Simulated assay, not measured.
Amino acid sequence: MSLSHLIDGLLGRVAPMRVVARYPHGMFGPVRVLDTHDVDGLPVRILEVDGSWQSATYLDDGWCELAFPYHRLYDDVLVAAHATGNVLMLGGGACAYPKYAIAHHPEATVDVVEVDPLMLELAWRHFFLDRLEERYHAQAKGRLRLHQADALDFLRTTDQRYDAILNDCFQAEEPLASLSAPEALDLVRARLLPHGLYLINVVSALKGPDSAPLAGLLPLFGERFKTVLVLPCGADEADLPDNNVVVATDAAPELDGALDASALGL
């Protein structure tokens, strides 16, 4: 089951989609901006890249709220761990979580790293980054810093350290392999403050034949971080694929619903 299908079900989309704009030459394939409604009738705008949903925003009064459930889980983790201060977002897409963090956490500063300049352009044009700047002056005040760069290159060259690093880089519908490699994980750990958290969304079952994505990542995380937790995004059956937020840290955060990675036996 794909990330798009999982998000589709979680959003409860019932309305047909209207194409707002098409961009045939994105860095990772054709791009479409789509409007639809969720199950409650709330208008939603989707950023689709090469057939995969990469980002979303509510429209109207919900323009700075989070449409994807795993983004809401990201925020729950950061709030619970008091890690909303200095955040690095790898893979900006349409800047859904950075926009939310700036609007809802006055203490937050967010670095956004996005390799495709078209994504940043669309965040301003179609996903309300312009409205965020008008209301919060986030760039002008240094609270929002946009970097058009490769995520791994940014990790190699920055000297910043963060309360949280969120990995939202996808190739098709899988986490970018280069950011799960040993070098990348070592760089991530080096860029975190002592209490810092590394979060990544992984579409996987918790057990059985569809658990391979988690089974491949968790041992690598466990070799480098003292604590590795998995927060299922809502699957009722452990052998069915779903979104799972993996949290890696050297701290010991208390997170409701978290599963210790070692207890999963993957």
Rank of each mutant, 00 (worst) to 15 (best):
V110F: 03
C169M: 05
E121D: 10
R143P: 03
D168V: 05
V112P: 02
H71P: 03
A172W: 09
D40A: 13
D242Q: 06
Y97K: 00
T249M: 03
V14E: 15
L146I: 11
R22Q: 15
L166N: 03
T36K: 00
L220Y: 05
G26D: 11
T227R: 06
P219D: 10
K207V: 05
F154H: 10
H82T: 08
A177Y: 02
D256A: 08
W63T: 06
D130H: 12
Y74E: 01
Q148N: 15
D239F: 09
M119P: 08
E65I: 01
H5W: 14
Y97T: 03
V246G: 02
S178Y: 13
E237M: 05
E254R: 14
G51I: 00
L3R: 05
R156N: 11
D40E: 10
L73V: 11
R135M: 10
D75S: 07
L73M: 09
V230Q: 03
L199D: 01
A103G: 10
K141D: 12
F127S: 05
G222I: 00
L218D: 02
R72P: 02
F68H: 05
L42W: 10
L197Q: 07
T249A: 06
D75G: 01
A138D: 11
S180A: 14
F225V: 03
D153E: 15
V31C: 06
D111M: 00
G85S: 07
E254F: 13
C64N: 12
T109E: 10
L59A: 07
P30D: 08
L78V: 10
A138S: 08
D186L: 12
D256W: 09
A67C: 04
G91M: 05
P69I: 04
L42Q: 12
M17G: 15
L217T: 04
V39I: 12
A123E: 05
D242K: 00
A205R: 02
V247H: 00
R161F: 08
V115S: 08
L217Y: 09
M17Y: 12
D116P: 01
D75R: 02
F154Q: 04
Y100A: 00
R145Y: 04
H71F: 12
C233E: 07
E48R: 09
P182W: 13
F68N: 04
E237R: 13
G92Q: 00
M1Y: 08
V87W: 05
V203A: 04
A215D: 00
L231V: 11
H25C: 08
S178D: 14
A212R: 09
S4V: 14
T109F: 14
A212K: 03
R72W: 09
P16S: 06
P106W: 14
W63F: 03
A212G: 06
A151T: 04
E121W: 11
V31R: 11
M17P: 10
S262Q: 14
I46L: 12
V188Y: 05
C64A: 15
I102C: 05
P232G: 12
L240S: 09
L266N: 07
V112W: 04
P209N: 11
R13L: 15
